[in-house]
């Protein structure tokens, strides 16, 4: 793992951006761009990153950025990739779509799936803060079972999240990863690796969101890590046909460390306040997690 002092000093997201304090998505893009470098074109659909980059006429991102409509990240990137190919520059310039979970799991899945099926040469990042942050925390297809959102305000969400990264891996793309913004060096390494692969690369980053998760901003990284340490979020990658667990999730899978109790993660977050009062629901939450572990363990071992 790269040492912190070896991380490139270049910054492609400047101070003065408009993210909330403790925003995981911002930690993630900072380290992803350090790996990709300045020869990168970004396309960003409607999401928190539309806001984080700052208000016109300024912009905190030090790269060309095409802001695009909410449902279009995969398609807009397809156009950029095609144009670069036409100009013969597709080998020199990275194309990255940077979308939220709403723009990926929900409204943007069609454009993303199409781009992957066409083997479009680009990196698609889904930073997953598990709700619609931009519009004030409505539920998404990524919102965990039982979590509060402003469109599931009383009972909590009644469905489990989609296994989005697995869905993308099953498109047969050359690289898929599921990581977390709580481990910035892993973010850097994942993008460093993805950069040199040709074809569609899908990277999902679990992105702490104190505003939506209803937890203290200064505990943001702690909660990102707790998600992994409790096994609620699983870090893995699929390179070619090979599936591997990553980081702490690897240690858990290999039995080297024990998973912490799920309650350690759920209890302090306001969004799970109703869920934790109902032991049946907590069981159902845990069942969803176990199911994902079982499926991934099979993938990794075969």
């Amino acid at each position: 793992m790269v040492a912190i002092k070896e991380l490139p000093r270049d910054e492609y997201i400047e101070l003065g951006h408009a993210a909330c304090a403790g925003c995981g998505a911002t930690i993630a893009i900072r380290h992803a761009l350090k790996a990709l470098g300045g020869n990168t074109i970004l396309t960003v659909p409607a999401c928190c990153m539309s806001v984080i980059q700052g208000l016109f006429p300024k912009n905190a991102l030090h790269l060309p950025v095409l802001n695009t409509a909410f449902e279009t990240a995969g398609a807009a990137a397809s156009g950029i990739a095609a144009g670069l190919k036409f100009m013969g520059k597709d080998k020199d310039i990275n194309v990255m779509a940077w979308a939220g979970d709403g723009g990926t799991y929900d409204i943007g899945i069609q454009a993303l799936s199409g781009a992957a099926e066409r083997k479009t040469n680009f990196i698609y990042t889904c930073y997953n803060n598990e709700s619609y942050g931009n519009t004030g925390q409505q539920r998404s297809g990524a919102t965990p079972y039982g979590a509060f959102s402003t469109t599931t305000p009383i009972i909590g969400k009644q469905e489990h999240r989609k296994p989005m990264a697995r869905i993308m891996a099953e498109h047969g793309i050359p690289y898929t990863a599921s990581i977390s913004a709580a481990y910035p060096r892993l973010v850097f390494e994942t993008y460093s690796k993805a950069k040199d692969i040709v074809g569609t690369r899908f990277i999902e980053i679990h992105a702490m969101c104190p505003t939506g998760w209803r937890c203290a901003t200064w505990d943001s990284v702690k909660f990102g890590k707790l998600a992994v340490e409790t096994g609620v979020w699983i870090m893995w990658e699929k390179e070619g046909e090979e599936w591997r667990f990553l980081g702490r999730s690897k240690q858990i899978a290999e039995g080297k460390v024990q998973r912490k109790p799920v309650m350690d993660y759920l209890k302090p977050q306001g969004r799970f306040r109703t869920l934790i009062k109902d032991s049946k629901k907590v069981k159902e939450f845990e069942r969803g997690i176990e199911r994902e572990w079982d499926i991934l363990k099979q993938k990794v071992s075969c």
């Binding site: 619609y132 931009n134 519009t135 402003t150 469109t151 305000p153």
Partner: peptide, 10 residues
């Protein structure tokens, strides 16, 4: 949801 309609559906 979409700003500024969101509070209708919430």
């Amino acid at each position: 949801p979409i700003t500024p309609q969101t509070t209708i559906v919430e």
